[in-house]
Amino acid sequence: MLDQSMASAEDLMTREVVVVHPDTKLATAVKLMAEHAISGIPVVDAAGMPVAMLTEGDLLRWHGEFTEKQAWWLEHLADGYDLAPTFLGALRSQSRKVSAIMSKDVTYVSPETPARELARLFYEKKIKRVPVVRDGKMVGLVSRADLVKALAKELAAEQAAEKA
């Protein structure tokens, strides 16, 4: 059904998108996600270009302390000495920012991307949302729910045409 659709990303996208930056505190990002009932939030640079996504999955994988690999490096860095508490505190504060856990492999599309291509991207890349970018800046976001709404609208129109 969507392969016959004339809808594009621009037709389907949400235009008012909540975003965060890599240096946003995780607590702030989580609060925004909860307040807006969203499962993922684009991470944009200063120019408004998406550089990553922060998702519920990222939050579930995050445990708030050093990873095993980070702990190994810190142990070798100290080499028998205690690391300064202020140094460890600074490292921990960095791990409490969006940049510490965001998914950097962000897929984005142009406003002209057809609905069928969006569906293919969601399925093949196992993603739930894509930022829509024009001239190096995010102008919207299309989610799987947006595609479902478009499909429902097309099915309703098809049923109405059959009854006529």
Rank of each mutant, 00 (worst) to 15 (best):
T113Q: 07
E35H: 06
Q94P: 00
P42F: 09
L118K: 02
A47R: 15
G136M: 01
L91M: 11
E162A: 13
Q4F: 14
S93R: 11
D82Y: 06
P114E: 04
E158G: 07
M138N: 07
A52R: 08
A145D: 15
A100R: 01
K128F: 05
G140R: 03
V44H: 11
P22M: 09
E35R: 11
F122V: 01
H36P: 10
L151T: 05
E56M: 10
S110F: 08
A100I: 01
V19S: 10
V17G: 05
P111T: 04
P131H: 03
A150I: 04
A71L: 15
Y108E: 15
L118W: 08
S8L: 08
S95I: 01
E68G: 11
M102L: 07
L32T: 04
A152Q: 15
E112I: 07
V51E: 09
S39M: 11
V132F: 06
D135G: 12
S8Y: 06
G40R: 14
V18A: 14
D45Y: 10
S110P: 02
L2K: 00
P114N: 03
P111E: 04
L91P: 04
L60M: 11
S39G: 14
S8A: 05
T107D: 08
E158H: 12
R92H: 06
L54E: 06
S103F: 10
V130E: 05
D82C: 00
V30S: 08
D105F: 13
S93K: 11
R116F: 02
R129P: 04
